[in-house]
């Protein structure tokens, strides 16, 4: 359904001393209808940048995004608008989406108004149905965002994302600031909605346990690259970085090295991006690494078997 090819994003800052930072480099991705894909990785690995490029909020530096075979990147705004409703983003912080001076009901109704072609009664009936779908009662509707708890507000944002009957939802850390019980509620609800509507779901998170619990397929990102992709990644991690993440979840080895402690890779280094932190590095890791197909899995490490 959604297909991304060789997506790259480079942020530049500074006028005179221009600094270039590659956030995402060469990501290929394909999502089928009804499938849940989890993208995991530490903060700063380019997960959110990737999400923004998938929903067309950010123009990629190079690479293409296709939706049902139609190329979205480079399309003009007027044509793109037809597709915007089909792919929706649910951000980490629900406060970023809803206007604090509007009632939540009005925020949810806004997409109908923008699209046009709905009578007032239709809008009100649709909004009521959406509130019911996300488990909010009628008394929540006339409230303002500050009168709702974090979990309730996140449900409002999901209701708003569902207005235009999307085919793909991209959840960017949608539950990582919430309590476990609220997180469980939101995730269960998203899965139910997915089943009912046959949505594709992209679940971006740094919580590996949550990713494991919800997803059909997992992509592990490190430094803007996909280092591992497959179905049972967490049961049988092949890339050293995935193994390090798994250790961290179980608080297994307490010897901790953070990327910021070892500093950036030297200029012109074209080898494995995990080279400096990898415990199993050898001379051969200085060669550039390609995603290889290893037993139904894609791994960016020459050692993986």
């Amino acid at each position: 359904m959604l297909k991304a090819e060789n997506l790259r994003c480079v942020y530049t800052s500074g006028l005179i001393k221009t600094v270039k930072k590659t956030a995402v480099c060469g990501v290929d991705l394909e999502i089928c209808p009804g499938e849940t894909v989890a993208i995991v990785g530490e903060s700063g690995c380019g997960k959110s940048t990737l999400a923004k490029m998938l929903v067309q909020q950010l123009e990629p530096t190079s690479g293409e995004v296709f939706f049902d075979g139609t190329k979205l990147t480079g399309m003009n705004w007027k044509n793109l608008r037809k597709f915007m409703g089909k792919i929706q983003l649910i951000p980490q912080n629900p406060d970023d989406v809803v206007d604090p001076r509007w009632t939540v009901e009005r925020s949810v109704a806004e997409p109908f108004v923008i699209c046009g072609g709905f009578s007032r009664e239709e809008i009100s009936a649709n909004v009521a149905a959406l509130f019911e779908e996300v488990g909010l009662s009628a008394e929540h509707r006339p409230r303002y965002p500050h009168e709702l708890s974090g979990g309730e507000l996140q449900r409002v944002v999901i209701a708003r994302a569902l207005t235009l009957k999307p085919e793909l939802l991209v959840c960017d850390e949608a539950t990582s600031m919430l309590d476990v019980s609220v997180q469980a509620f939101i995730v269960t609800m998203l899965k139910e909605i997915q089943k009912k509507r046959g949505l594709g779901l992209v679940f971006i998170t740094h919580d590996l346990e949550a990713a494991k619990a919800v997803s059909d397929r997992v992509l592990v990102m490190y430094a803007g690259e996909i280092v591992e992709e497959g179905k049972d990644v967490f049961d049988r991690p092949l890339h050293p970085y995935t193994r390090a993440l798994m250790d961290a979840v179980q608080y297994a080895s307490l010897e901790v090295v953070l990327p910021e402690d070892v500093g950036p890779l030297p200029d012109g280094f074209s080898g494995c991006s995990y080279y400096k932190l990898c415990r199993e590095r050898t001379e051969a890791c200085k060669e550039s690494q390609k995603l290889r197909n290893v037993s139904e899995r894609l791994v960016r490490c020459w050692k993986a078997k």
Partner: peptide
């Protein structure tokens, strides 16, 4: 018990009702 059941490792069962 409900809180522990809501943890992803134990199947993410939400607690009914709200705080």
């Amino acid at each position: 018990q409900a809180l522990l059941d809501a943890v992803p490792e134990r199947g993410m069962h939400p607690i009914p009702g709200s705080s």
